[in-house]
Amino acid sequence: MEDVRTSKFCQSCGMPMRKDPQHGGLNKNGTKSADYCSYCYVNGEFTFNGTVKEMQAFCKQKMIEQGSPKFLAWLLTRSIPRLSRWRTKPR
């Protein structure tokens, strides 16, 4: 039996995967991504190609636009650099 691991949070933006209306992004072969949400990952490619700082600012702004308090948006986006997409690989 195949082990299908699903992240609790998108490993690109940090959004809870349960809040993703598509229940995950799509890989190139059409299967659901277990690690990335449908906002960040389409057809096996990332939709946002900026830096981690730019991703934090983008996510913070989106949260504020959707009614989150600025402090909460700031707090929730602090962990983005620790997500697997943004972690620096060891040398």
Results as ranks from 00 to 15, higher is better:
Met1Gly: 12
Met1Glu: 10
Met1Trp: 05
Met1Cys: 09
Glu2Gln: 12
Asp3Met: 05
Asp3Leu: 11
Asp3His: 11
Val4Lys: 12
Val4Cys: 04
Val4His: 14
Arg5Ile: 14
Arg5Tyr: 13
Phe9Cys: 03
Phe9Gln: 12
Cys10Thr: 05
Cys10Val: 03
Gln11Asn: 13
Ser12Met: 04
Cys13Thr: 04
Cys13Gln: 07
Gly14Thr: 02
Met15His: 00
Pro16Ala: 08
Pro16Trp: 01
Lys19Val: 00
Pro21Asn: 05
Pro21Leu: 13
Gly24Arg: 07
Asn29Gly: 09
Asn29Ala: 11
Asn29Met: 00
Gly30Met: 09
Thr31Ala: 06
Thr31Glu: 15
Thr31Val: 00
Ser33Asn: 13
Ser33Glu: 04
Ala34Arg: 01
Ala34His: 03
Tyr36Gln: 07
Tyr36Phe: 15
Tyr36Glu: 13
Cys37Lys: 06
Ser38Tyr: 05
Ser38Asp: 12
Ser38Val: 09
Tyr39Gly: 09
Cys40Tyr: 06
Tyr41Met: 06
Val42Lys: 15
Glu45Pro: 05
Phe46Arg: 02
Phe46Glu: 08
Thr47Lys: 11
Asn49Met: 13
Thr51Asp: 12
Thr51Phe: 08
Thr51Cys: 09
Val52Gly: 02
Lys53Leu: 12
Lys53Ser: 11
Glu54Pro: 03
Glu54Lys: 02
Gln56Ser: 08
Gln56Thr: 05
Ala57Met: 12
Ala57Ile: 07
Phe58Ala: 02
Phe58Trp: 11
Cys59Ser: 09
Lys60Ile: 03
Lys60Ala: 09
Lys60Glu: 15
Gln61Gly: 05
Lys62Val: 01
Met63Asp: 10
Met63Ser: 10
Ile64Gly: 02
Gln66Cys: 03
Gln66Met: 10
Pro69Phe: 04
Pro69Asn: 14
Lys70Met: 02
Lys70Phe: 01
Phe71Gln: 06
Leu72Trp: 04
Ala73Tyr: 04
Ala73Met: 04
Trp74Cys: 01
Leu75Val: 03
Leu76His: 06
Leu76Ile: 10
Leu76Tyr: 11
Leu76Phe: 13
Leu76Gln: 14
Leu76Asn: 11
Thr77Gln: 08
Arg78Asp: 01
Arg78Tyr: 05
Pro81Cys: 01
Arg82Met: 04
Arg82Ser: 14
Leu83Ala: 07
Leu83Ile: 00
Ser84Val: 00
Arg85Gln: 14
Arg85Pro: 01
Thr88Val: 11
Thr88Glu: 15
Lys89Tyr: 10
Lys89Pro: 02
Pro90Phe: 08
